[in-house]
């Protein structure tokens, strides 16, 4: 245990706190997140409102907790979908090689070149802003990264002697992919997913900030930022707090990803 990288500890702690807050919000929040009470607006922190209230009298801590839940859910579903699809395509390209690989990789390049935010805005413009569309948009822009990472790693595994041995053992491409390639690239894909998680959180915040992500009354960090920005001098904590949450989560996932990468590094294994 003492050999775990420092970044893993810090990242894990940051992500752990945010995830815990999101989980707790499922069963308990200090206040109801949708309750508007104009008479209670701009309250300072107190026993009732731990972090005070906003311009509509809603409890800030509640908003942040439910916002964490929304952010993490979108990121999890989107990266999960995009990662699964991207990895599947990457594995296919890595296994087949030749034209299949060429086509899959060029398609990935093409969608890679497309600005992520712009695509999400287009999608929202076409189908209306919604939670689901935000998920689809973020999932889509995550695909090419996973295609590339998994294809490149799969190519390497396909060249290993143990894959040749499996071929000599009459195993088919699907069986080899399932039994040898996937387990050996899983670590790399998980590290990539962790780092992409941070990006997904950021894009979700940006979309919500633009009003294209999580829709009211569901709270979201991005929309908290945009709603409070005109009040920056009147009530700075209303922008600073969600901003800090975004920074902490993004930093946390990046550190976690770095830490996992160090952990998965085979050179580390040899050193032991």
């Amino acid at each position: 245990m003492r050999n775990l990288p420092v970044s893993l500890w810090i990242g894990g702690a940051l992500v752990g706190v945010i995830a815990l807050a999101a989980l707790v919000s499922l069963v308990w929040t200090p206040q109801d997140f949708a309750t508007v009470a104009v008479s209670e607006r701009f309250q300072p922190p107190s026993a009732r409102y731990w972090l005070g209230t906003d311009q509509l009298g809603r409890d800030v801590l509640t908003q942040l907790m439910v916002g964490a839940r929304n952010s993490l859910t979108i990121a999890l579903v989107a990266v999960g979908l995009g990662g699964a699809l991207g990895t599947a395509l990457g594995l296919l390209a890595g296994a087949k090689g030749g034209w299949t690989e060429e086509i899959v990789l060029r398609l990935a390049d093409f969608s890679f070149a497309f600005p992520a935010l712009l695509f999400a805005i287009m999608l929202a413009a076409a189908f209306g802003p919604s939670f689901a569309n935000a998920v689809v948009a973020i999932a889509f822009i995550n695909i090419p990264v996973f295609v590339r990472v998994s294809c490149a790693s799969a190519r390497q595994v396909w060249q290993r002697d143990y894959v040749l041995a499996a071929r000599a053992s009459a195993r088919g491409g699907l069986a080899i992919t399932r039994d040898h390639v996937l387990p050996n690239i899983a670590a790399i894909v998980i590290v990539q997913a962790t780092i992409d998680f941070a990006g997904a959180i950021l894009i979700e915040a940006a979309l919500s900030y633009l009003g294209l992500g999580v829709q009211p009354p569901e709270p979201s960090w991005g929309r908290m930022l945009s709603e409070a920005q005109t009040l920056l001098f009147l009530a700075p904590q209303l922008t600073v707090l969600p901003g800090l949450c975004i920074v902490a989560t993004v930093l946390g996932f990046n550190l976690l990803g770095d830490g996992l990468r160090d952990l998965a590094d085979p050179r580390r294994e040899k050193a032991r």
């Binding site: 143990y162 040749l164 041995a165 039994d179 040898h180 387990p183 050996n184």
Partner: peptide, 14 residues
């Protein structure tokens, strides 16, 4: 077949 490199010819995760 028996390969040259006994490190590379066995899947490290199996």
């Amino acid at each position: 077949m028996v390969f040259q490199d006994p490190f590379g010819s066995l899947d490290p995760r199996r």
